[in-house]
Design a protein around this nucleic acid. Structure first.
Lengths: 210, 210
DNA sequence: ATTTTTTTATTGAATGTTCAATTAATAAAA
DNA sequence: TTTTATTAATTGAACATTCAATAAAAAAAT
């Protein structure tokens, strides 16, 4: 059976098998044997390609975060406008991208989320991702409102996205992607309208400084 | 040492110790020995009072959900008005109640949240709680807007609350309670304003039936 | 074009550890 | 003295990891 150049194939297989196993029985019961069985290989191979279980877990989380980042980037790059609203909508849509929201990925994500509280390696990845979402949102809001307001808007929209996502992952029926996207977009509308209403009044409106 | 009537004392001690252990090392490494050590007793006592580790875990989650429910109820009962807005604000405040947001409780909550995806017993508790928050919110919004709109408002506010809460639990600095409360309240304002704006226009406004 | 050697991929069994649960013993209180 | 509370030691199962063995493929030598 052994052929050359199996490494990238096996790595991919095992990462996918990890998500399947976590989706099936949860992180706590996702043993190396179970994961290996899912991939149709022996348990030892995990240590061979990933150095151990931890390595596989980290690689799996990396993959998820990477996919998410690319889903967002792809939608933003497809835009021909620099309109902040369009970019904010792209960020929302990217976060509710199909590939991110499918059962196995969603559950794996949440499992890692929880365990990242106590695993420094995962925590680092988690934080990078969190900050990226916040920074992206904040940057776009800055075109539309003063700094502090933009920060709050970014914080709130980030919370809304994560909250919808979390509730979706937990309900037995899974996330209703269309509804989640719609609610997040409606919230974005409200944020922008709310600012328009405030800034169209004759008060001082501090424009974004550079 | 042995005295009569230790049961309620030990149970409380052990539940608290469970949260402390989970806060310290995470659910995965919260072994019975570690928990027992936190409580200053031996590991065997856990099986004696809770029938086993699972029993202790369930009791701990029950306690957290109970405390949360009481925090909300207490604030709502303290109101002398039936104003939907006041009740919605009380629900928000209750969810960001001090006792819920302290490090150990928050982390334990999130840990259970994740593991409830695969543990039927915890999942049941989780769902009851989720539905209660949604139903409470929905019922209040129904006084102010038509059914479908009220449902969406409830879903969105619930997501916002959970999202703020989740992000707070994950950041190393912990949740900024005041800011979270403020953002959730501002969102509530937007939801209510947004409806006012829509219903003050000369369109048909379906009043709450019943 | 064979044969030999080396490299790569993989397995299965063995190892040692960790854990929850059980049990027998102990000690205080009633 | 009997019951209640608790512990320390033990058991057995589950687990990740390691390692020697094997088998295929590729490369080198004949």
């Amino acid at each position: 059976m052994p052929k050359v150049g199996m490494e990238p194939i096996r790595r991919q297989q095992l990462i996918k098998a990890t998500m399947a196993a976590i989706d099936e029985v949860g992180l706590a019961d996702a043993t190396v044997m179970r994961i290996a069985r899912h991939a149709g290989v022996s348990a030892g191979i995990i240590s061979h390609y990933f150095g151990g279980k931890d390595g596989l877990m980290e690689a799996t989380m990396r993959q998820i975060l990477n996919d998410l980042g690319e889903a967002v980037s792809a939608r933003r790059n497809a835009l021909s406008t620099t309109s902040p609203r369009a970019h904010l909508e792209a960020i929302i849509d990217g976060n509710f991208d199909r590939s991110q929201v499918t059962g196995p990925v969603a559950k794996t994500w949440l499992a890692f989320w929880a365990s990242s509280m106590h695993q420094p390696q995962l925590q680092r990845l988690q934080n990078v991702n969190d900050r990226r979402l916040y920074a992206n949102l904040c940057h776009q809001f800055r075109f539309l409102m003063p700094r502090e307001q933009a920060r709050d808007a970014a914080r709130a929209l980030a919370a809304m996205i994560d909250g919808l996502w979390l509730r979706g992952a937990l309900t037995p029926e899974g996330l209703d992607t269309d509804r989640a996207r719609r609610l997040a977009r409606e919230y974005l509308d409200q944020l922008l309208q709310s600012h328009d209403a405030r800034s169209s009044r004759p008060s001082h409106e501090p424009q974004p400084e550079s």
